[in-house]
Amino acid sequence: MDIDALLPQFAAQLFELFAALALAPLLTGWVNQWRARLQGRTPPPLLLPYHTLMKLFGKEPLLAHNASSLFRVAPYLIFSCMALAAAIVPTLSSELLFAPAADAIALVGLFALARVFIALAGMDIGTAFGSLGARREMLIGFLAEPALLMVFFTASVISGSTSLATIVDTLAHREFHIYPSLAFAGVAFTMVSIAENGRVPVDNPATHLELTMIHEAMILEYSGRHLALIEWAASLKLFAYSCLGIALFFPFGIAQTLGPGALAIAVALMVGKLALGGFLLALIETLSAKMRVFRTPEFLGSAFLLAVLAVLVHLLLEGSR
């Protein structure tokens, strides 16, 4: 491939990365706003997450006396993992420069890497809350990961490749076909992403109640720019998961070429789909009650079973005949 062909791909990749970085807090703000509205509270401003980030970046980070270097490095690592994840997911176009570098399995690995570091950082200071949150996070993580992998395997079996770009190409740009297995995979993916992003039936992102918090418990010791990076990374994770869901289950409109026109349409469609997805997430969060931590294995176990069923159904209904 010569340099002339690479340049537009590089530009599209950069554009997508920066779009993800810029839009991720907006999605979080949008979800929070709808949550408040559905619960009958006055909604916070849409741009509140940006103000929080700016405020936190301006503050001096405070470190505990016994904080190791890992504690200081972790926010940067987590942030770069999530930024890379957001760059790999084919959000706007399936012609991405990074796409051959990492497939769906590597993406799960990236999420796992970020999780390990946030859990280690949570335990680093040695407070009770930190290690409690870290243990709960690892419990959820080790149950959610196989389910997420099985969802990806379903899509991979359909398209014959684990590369996300190929999967999206197959699902979006071939002749229209109903895949019943994707219905199962979609339900499983929704359950996994709710658990992974610390949303209501599993964890509450707005709580500081010691009995229930998971994500918040790990990052209690962080302040200043470290906290800002972690909050931004959490928004990016939600953004990456939403884009993954859209790419796997509603991929229509993702650009196949790199022309400015196709990209503009893709951006408009993507913003619309994300807005709808954020609203649905807020709806799920409002309608369901937070469950006990010990019920989460059952929740994620069902997600895994549904994902396994998706593969089985694919082999039976859509398989060789």
Binding site: H177, I178, L306
Partner: peptide, 29 residues
């Protein structure tokens, strides 16, 4: 590749019935 080539051959009604079957199984679970 054999699967991929046979897939579009299934008529739309068949796909719809397959979807219903999958939903039946989902409800059973």
């Amino acid at each position: 590749n054999a699967w991929l080539s046979t897939l579009p051959g299934l008529p739309f009604a068949g796909q719809l019935i397959n979807l219903c079957a999958a939903i039946m199984l989902l409800i059973a679970f």
